[in-house]
Amino acid sequence: MSKDFPLNSLGFAKPPSETRVVVAMSGGVDSSVVAAQLAEEGYDVVGVTLQLYDHGAALAKKGACCAGQDIHDARRVAEEMGFPHYVLDYENVFQEAVIDEFADAYLGGATPVPCIRCNERVKFKDLLETAKDLEADCMATGHYIQRKMGENGPELHSAADPNRDQSYFLFSTTPEQLAYLRFPLGHLPSKDATRALAAKYGLAVADKPDSQDICFVPNGNYAAVIEKLRPGAADPGEIVDLEGNVLGEHKGVIHYTIGQRRGLGIGGLGDPLYVVKLDPDTRRVVVGPKEALATRTIPVREINWLGDAPLTSRPEWHLTVKVRSTRPPRPAILRPISETEAEVELLTPEEGVSPGQACVFYDPDSSRIFGGGWIWKGR
């Protein structure tokens, strides 16, 4: 196709009908709208849904993605819009790459974010390779994030709607992946706009509720899932204060997270106490006053850097960072140790910073994401 042909909406110099796009379809309204919109625009759409776990198993729940009803919903959208749809069995990959690490991280006293690992190790790795095997020009998803062309190639930017922005969960997207990926919903002003498009296309999923929590964790009960995956993991132990004084007993470190206040079972001891450290080796839950949760220095590793200049090209970077998905970016100084490790200094201490969470880097002067890494050890 001539390079003089105007770029289509996916950035290719050829007609939509000659542009094949694989759409990762979870069965929810977001990815369904992406598939329907691209099909209506005339693209050669191929829908692919991953079955990530046995939808009849105890781990699955109603309202989760990538199982039973959701596979049916994705197939129905494909039938309505007239494009092919495939279901790929990724149960073993998901178990090994996501669920097992989730269990082991919790047992190690961390607070993991399996949705990031799923994007990194399954959706943007194996599924992306499948899209290339299908000779697709690109792969599109229903994530709320933006891909913009910069002077040095594609850049990752926050979604237009800050309430829907999923940049925290996509920081590990590599430049090579970003070149191949498309995010058609990132520019929309709200989720209402997405649902309006679903209604416009007559999709049965237009009013389908958003999935909640982690897909393989019923009702947000992490401990129950860990006990199922790792029998005997919930060994009891001591609850101690910062000086090591025993204040009570707990039913297993896996039942606690950094910053937790309720449900400690040690009331009546004066000022409120919070979980400030989990020590799985000694099976101890360490508690202390709220100020003991404040963290200023965060060690970060497994960094995926998306800046134009190499991470180590400067002794420090003045950025904003997110240490939890629900918190706004805060001013920080990033000091590289190597291409994949750094120390992050928060200009204002944050409470409840936990190993296993992500630390995501943002440009303070724009919507651009500079990547991120994993918080990896205690304070």
Rank of each mutant, 00 (worst) to 15 (best):
K3W: 15
F5Y: 15
P6A: 05
L7W: 08
N8H: 08
S9D: 15
L10M: 10
S17F: 13
V22P: 01
M25D: 08
M25S: 07
S26L: 10
G27F: 06
S32E: 07
L38E: 02
A39N: 00
A39K: 04
E41Q: 09
E41W: 05
V46L: 09
V48Q: 02
L50R: 00
D54H: 11
H55M: 00
H55D: 12
A64V: 00
A64F: 01
H72M: 11
A74T: 00
R75C: 07
R75E: 08
V77T: 10
H85W: 07
V87F: 01
L88K: 03
Y90H: 08
E91G: 12
N92C: 02
E96Y: 06
V98R: 12
E101R: 12
A105R: 13
A105M: 13
G109M: 01
G109P: 09
T111R: 12
I116M: 00
K123H: 01
F124H: 10
L128W: 00
K132I: 12
K132W: 04
A136N: 05
A136P: 04
H143L: 06
Y144N: 08
Q146G: 13
G150E: 03
G153W: 12
P154I: 03
D161V: 00
R164F: 02
L170V: 01
F171V: 02
T174W: 13
P175E: 05
P175F: 04
Y180G: 01
Y180V: 07
F183S: 15
L185A: 11
S190Q: 10
A193Q: 05
A193D: 05
R195M: 03
L197T: 09
A198G: 11
A199E: 15
G202K: 03
K208T: 03
P209F: 07
S211N: 08
D213T: 13
I214K: 00
P218R: 10
G220I: 04
G220F: 08
N221H: 14
N221S: 08
V225L: 07
E227A: 13
P231N: 04
G232S: 11
G237N: 01
E238W: 06
E238R: 12
I239E: 04
I239L: 07
L242N: 10
G244R: 11
G244D: 11
V246L: 05
K251G: 05
Q260L: 04
R262I: 13
P272T: 09
V275K: 03
V275S: 03
D279R: 06
D279A: 11
P280S: 05
D281I: 06
G288I: 08
P289G: 06
A292F: 09
A292K: 06
L293V: 04
P299H: 09
P299S: 07
R301N: 13
R301S: 11
W305P: 05
G307R: 00
A309T: 03
R314W: 02
P315Y: 00
P315Q: 05
P315E: 10
H318W: 14
V321P: 05
K322V: 06
V323A: 03
V323M: 14
R327N: 13
R330A: 15
P331F: 14
P331K: 14
P331N: 15
I333H: 13
L334F: 14
P336W: 12
P336V: 08
E343L: 15
L346M: 09
V353Y: 09
V360W: 11
D365I: 09
S366P: 02
S366T: 11
S366E: 01
I369V: 15
G373F: 10
